[in-house]
Amino acid sequence: MKTFSDPCTVDRYDFNGATMGTRYRAVLYSAEVQNEGELARQLDQAVTQVDLQMSNWRPDSELMRFNDLEPGIWMTLPSDLLWVLHTAIQVGLASDSAFDIAVGDLVGAWSFGPPAGLAKGGEREALRRQPGPSAAAALEFDFGSGRVRKRHRVHLDLSGIAKGFGVDRLARCLEDRGIRDYLVSIDGEFRARGGKPGGQPWTVAIEAPQEGVRTALGVLQMGDGGLATSGDYRHFLEQEGTRYAHTMDPRLAVPVANDVASVSVLAPTCMLADAWATALMVLGPERGSAMAREYGLSALFLLRDKGGLRQLWVDGDGAVG
């Protein structure tokens, strides 16, 4: 049974800052927070560390250093990065390759990665005709020594999982301090535990998939766990009258092209919610909802049709509405 702190004995704290080209936030209730300044520093340090390890936009990140290595060369990686890579591969295998972090070249060819520029038609066509190896096939792990090497030349892109892990790291900072009632987020991805004083649950807005504006379509109550959304309305490319979403279909080596405007996923961690939101976006409503039921995920699909938006909800015990 979920319990909440006594409203007469707790205070509300709110921390926020810049990270990953956007902002993070941590809202919590606690009877006493020792040294607020130190906690703010720890939260900032946690997300900064994730960015330094996993960013595709920082040439000095651990990930980019690994991307630059030739196949066969071992590299010792921080434990957090090692865990994210391993988790990404597991989600990739479970999703029938709908999620795959070995899409760095593909993302670059479609001008969605650094540096931005015109889409490279010849490179796109070459990748479509002969897609590169999956991350599962390309990476070899030595967990005993914390090392990874590439079997094949590949460029990894963690944009579909790193932000979710960053949210989990914020949560870990609070958990380490014994804080049990919190909501942390980075740019619309969340991790929650406990609730507000008086037994009120945490509520978060589900964004309407509208280009150029941010409006709430509705709200969702969160229990303990993570929430992430993948959509086609924020980052896209228009070329010769055609709009291409930034989410790649690794199986076809092309941008996703289906009627899914967005998918929001509830999972035990925000890292898993982040990765699975991308996978379900790629799979589409029919296969995606079936896979959500298979793995016990709660998911909200927002689908475009001639009449506007249609909602498809799959809850964690397999019900569909």
Rank of each mutant, 00 (worst) to 15 (best):
L220P: 04
A171T: 05
P7Q: 11
F141I: 02
F4G: 03
D274C: 14
G178A: 05
P114W: 10
G72M: 00
Q130G: 05
G178S: 02
S79E: 15
R41S: 11
N56Q: 12
D60R: 03
D224I: 05
L158C: 09
V167M: 03
Q210I: 13
V320N: 05
P285K: 12
M281A: 11
E286W: 02
E32H: 10
L280N: 09
V213E: 15
D249T: 01
V47Y: 02
L43D: 11
G316E: 14
R177D: 06
S145L: 09
L252T: 15
G231R: 00
Q221L: 07
A292D: 12
R12T: 11
G321A: 12
G225P: 12
L43H: 09
Y13F: 13
R310V: 02
C173T: 07
I73S: 05
V256L: 01
A162Q: 08
Y244K: 04
V263L: 09
R147H: 03
H86E: 14
A257C: 04
A46P: 04
G199A: 02
C8N: 13
L158M: 05
W57T: 01
M64H: 12
Y182N: 04
L272V: 15
A253Y: 00
E125A: 07
V103Q: 08
L183T: 06
G194F: 01
L170K: 09
K120M: 06
V204F: 04
R193G: 02
D105G: 08
L252F: 04
L280D: 14
A126R: 12
L156V: 07
N56K: 09
L297T: 09
G113L: 03
G17C: 10
G144D: 14
P209F: 00
D274N: 14
D96L: 02
D6R: 07
D176F: 00
L312Y: 01
L220S: 13
S79M: 07
G318E: 12
